[in-house]
Design a protein around this nucleic acid. Structure first.
Length: 442
DNA sequence: CGCTACCCACGTCGCATGTA
DNA sequence: TACATGCGACGTGGGTAGCG
């Protein structure tokens, strides 16, 4: 008979710690294809439980973490459905009473649509979370640092929340100084930029999070030459968060929405030798689990666990920047790889809706910001033309309010103009020289 | 006019219940 | 008992209303 090895035997199982906290809440994409062939997880679990006994300590630890995550999300282990009926078994669940969006006097830049019906749970979700009750405040304003100018002013100065002042935008020279001289590199007592206290998280842009930031400038792109008006980092794009505090103040429970700053991943990759940056500095895929949040809405793995491997693979096996920086080829960038994987893995229905609408969509611009901006201009020009035409018609017809949806359907029926297309000038931008030259190797 | 949150229309997940 | 099915909750990208 088969003899099971003693549980947790060190000769059989090398103890393993996790360099990241796995997110077991993510949709299951099994690395073992055979698992995907079972209609239900119960049977393979039983097989593993019987034949795989005993599980190694790292598997046991992962299970414990998963259980922990689950407990944090639902501390009492009570199912949502059960809790409803157990509280009021005789009452049939009534439709949720609508919670309307409201103005937040502390965040005047957040502009809720006060006339909406409140038909979904998003306003409730936004209003129900109070970060000040959950997270610690930074105990002190970080010290200014960097090479002083002739007036003795430091280039890197902070707000009380630990954000770089809003007017501080990165030129190539400044980002180089920020990266190479950052005080966080001394976090371990000696200079080590690879395990620095400055962590650069590759992230998705979280939705509905305007009210989570300290100021209206907090989540803007820090690239001095950002192609997007006002440096807005729109949903669906990828960004890099400059996190200076979560390592340095790991004893505190700090708000993950408070970072020194952000940049479009696109801008970051175009501005510096990003492959070398991955080699030299602490760049990581954001796969963190936040115990105080329902989920990490900025995780790069939010929709697709494979994204972690794409970022990690890029960090481990960086391409040569020389080979695609001049002429610049967006197709070689991490931003492009993430976007392509995102589009590949998304539900087909979502893609179908996009193609039906025919807008300036992610599968056309692929998160190339130059193409995205040019596409937006084309859409606006078209809308403006349609609006002018509508106004001219209104002069000769009885007044009638034209809804935007009707306007869109009119556009859709116009064969010659209905399809959004990128013109040659836009695509030519794709091969333009990078705004800034390659950073020096140390 | 730019920007941001809401709505739409859908997919996914987890759990309760039904059924073989 | 194992699996299928139904259902509610929730999350998403794109389009759009409406605030400033």
């Amino acid at each position: 008979m088969y003899e099971y090895p003693p549980p947790d035997s060190p000769t059989t199982w090398a103890p393993q710690t996790f360099d990241f906290l796995p997110n077991f809440q993510e949709p299951a994409v099994y690395r073992h294809p055979i698992l995907a062939q079972f209609p239900s997880p119960t049977l393979p679990l039983r097989v593993i439980d019987q034949v795989g006994y005993p599980l190694g300590p790292h598997v046991t630890e992962a299970l414990r973490l998963a259980l922990n995550q689950r407990t944090q999300i639902n501390p009492y282990g009570i199912s949502k459905r059960k809790s409803v009926t157990s509280v009021a078994p005789a009452v049939k669940a009534s439709p949720r009473s609508p919670i309307r969006p409201v103005k937040n006097p502390l965040k005047p830049w957040v502009k809720p649509n006060l006339k909406t019906a409140g038909k979904n749970g998003r306003p409730a979700n936004i209003q129900s979370f109070d970060a000040t009750k959950v997270y610690d405040k930074l105990p002190y304003r970080p010290h200014s640092w960097g090479i002083q100018n002739h007036l003795g002013v430091y280039p890197f100065r902070y707000t009380a929340d630990g954000e770089l002042l809003p007017d501080i935008k990165f030129t190539q020279e400044l980002i180089m100084q920020y990266l190479t001289d950052h005080p966080g590199h001394l976090a371990h007592g000696q200079y080590n930029s690879k395990s620095s206290g400055l962590t650069m998280w590759v992230q998705s842009v979280p939705a509905d999070s305007a009210a989570r930031y300290a100021t209206e400038h907090s989540d803007k792109c820090r690239n001095a030459d950002c192609p997007v008006p006002n440096g807005t980092i729109h949903k669906g794009h990828y960004r890099v968060a400059f996190d200076e505090q979560s390592w340095t103040n790991s004893h505190l429970n700090l708000d993950p929405y408070n970072n020194a700053g952000y940049m479009h991943l696109y801008c970051f990759e175009k501005m510096i030798d990003f492959p070398q940056c991955c080699k030299d500095f602490n760049v990581q895929p954001d796969t963190r689990v936040f115990p105080n949040e329902k989920k990490n809405r900025m995780a790069v793995t939010r929709d697709n666990p494979e994204m972690r491997n794409i970022v990690q693979d890029y960090i481990n096996n960086q391409p040569q920047w020389d080979t695609f920086s001049n002429p610049y080829r967006y197709e070689e960038t991490l931003s492009y790889r993430l976007t392509k994987e995102h589009i590949r893995a998304e539900p087909a229905a979502r893609r179908a809706i996009r193609s039906k609408r025919g807008g300036n969509t992610i599968d056309k611009h692929l998160n190339n910001l130059e193409v995205y901006i040019a596409g937006n201009k084309q859409v606006r020009t078209k809308q403006g033309r349609a609006q002018r035409n509508a106004n001219e018609l209104a002069d000769s017809r009885p007044a009638r309010k034209t809804s935007a949806k009707r306007r869109r359907s009119q556009d859709d029926s116009d064969d010659s103009d209905s399809e959004f297309e990128l013109d040659g000038n836009v695509l030519a931008m794709n091969s333009s020289t990078p705004v800034l030259r390659k950073r020096q190797r140390r």
